[in-house]
Computed example of a mutant assay.
Amino acid sequence: MKLKYLLLGIVLHIISSSVFAQYLPLISENVLWSHVEIHCLPGYNSYSSRYYAFKNDTVIGETIYQKLYATDSPDQTGWYLWGLYREDTSTGKAWYRSVFPESEGIAYDFSAQVGDTVEIYNPAFSADLIRLIVMEKNIVEIGGILRKQLKMWEPQHIQSEIWIEGIGSLYGIKNSGMSWAGAACGSEELLCYWKDDKNLWQNPAFETCFFELTGRVNLPAASPHFSFQITNKTLIINKLHHTGLLIIYNMLGKEVLRQSLHETVTFSLTSLSQGFYLVRFVDPLGVSVTKIWLP
């Protein structure tokens, strides 16, 4: 019996060592992510979604980057550039290069071991490097493939986050280091992950892979459509069938813009400072709400 358990332990050790020695790339043009943004509003939450995908590459200096695009359209049209990534598959590290400002840093490090501190660059949450401590490192099976899973800890805000090899943070592909944000009202999570058009992972807290409509109630198909282009800080609102009121709030609840709309309109938001903003549109059909990030 002891020999049986010894042999089993040896086999498991060999499998574990083999998995940890391999690396499943994060960056690929045949994968797709969807996120859900949960917006805290008085008395209720609203939800919105975006798709993210790598499309094409670019060269800066002598370095090749893959372009990460995003769209908030349910039919996956109107893609806009979110940022640039590069990856070293020999070390299991991925770097993020923001469009504004043009700077770069580590986004993921799957070579990190338990007890290591990983310094993350993500200007969406902090102007400084975000330090995450690896608390656990194990193996999970997703889509029939064994993958490394790291549980990270952000000690300053006593928050944790999980990274899965080939998938990224469970806060979403672009949100490594989001645990630094702490328990602020509102959040963002990974909804679904596809590879080769197969849905390999779905957030167990939700029954859908995309929230097309936002607000207190389901709005009809004629509801307005928001599109935000982060590269030039432009907000586009179209599919207006009724005159309505647009109001934008900062995350302190202060109103920063109010305007009556009756046709497709494009707003330049370059005058607003860096941060998250809630965009609210009210018309006879109901209320639409989304959240945007200004770099």
Score class of each variant (00 low, 15 high):
177 G>Q: 09
178 M>K: 14
178 M>Y: 14
179 S>E: 09
179 S>V: 10
181 A>H: 15
182 G>M: 01
182 G>C: 02
183 A>N: 11
183 A>K: 08
185 C>W: 04
185 C>M: 06
186 G>Y: 12
186 G>I: 09
187 S>K: 12
188 E>C: 05
188 E>S: 13
190 L>C: 07
190 L>N: 01
190 L>H: 12
193 Y>H: 10
193 Y>Q: 01
194 W>A: 04
195 K>F: 08
196 D>W: 01
196 D>T: 06
196 D>F: 01
196 D>P: 00
197 D>T: 06
198 K>D: 12
198 K>Y: 08
199 N>H: 08
199 N>F: 00
200 L>P: 01
200 L>M: 05
201 W>A: 03
202 Q>V: 10
202 Q>H: 13
203 N>C: 04
204 P>G: 08
204 P>C: 08
206 F>N: 14
207 E>Y: 06
209 C>K: 00
209 C>Y: 09
209 C>G: 10
209 C>T: 12
211 F>C: 05
212 E>R: 14
212 E>W: 07
214 T>V: 05
215 G>F: 01
216 R>M: 14
216 R>D: 04
217 V>I: 10
218 N>L: 15
218 N>A: 14
219 L>S: 06
221 A>K: 06
221 A>G: 07
222 A>F: 06
222 A>H: 03
223 S>A: 13
223 S>F: 04
224 P>H: 03
224 P>K: 00
225 H>L: 09
225 H>G: 03
225 H>W: 04
225 H>C: 13
226 F>L: 04
227 S>P: 00
227 S>M: 05
227 S>V: 06
228 F>C: 13
228 F>D: 07
229 Q>E: 13
229 Q>D: 15
229 Q>C: 09
229 Q>T: 14
229 Q>F: 05
230 I>G: 02
230 I>L: 12
231 T>L: 10
233 K>G: 04
233 K>D: 14
234 T>M: 10
234 T>E: 11
235 L>F: 03
236 I>P: 02
236 I>C: 03
236 I>H: 11
238 N>W: 00
240 L>Q: 06
240 L>F: 02
242 H>F: 13
242 H>M: 03
243 T>I: 06
244 G>H: 00
244 G>E: 03
244 G>K: 01
245 L>F: 01
245 L>D: 10
245 L>V: 06
246 L>K: 03
246 L>W: 03
247 I>A: 12
247 I>E: 15
248 I>Y: 05
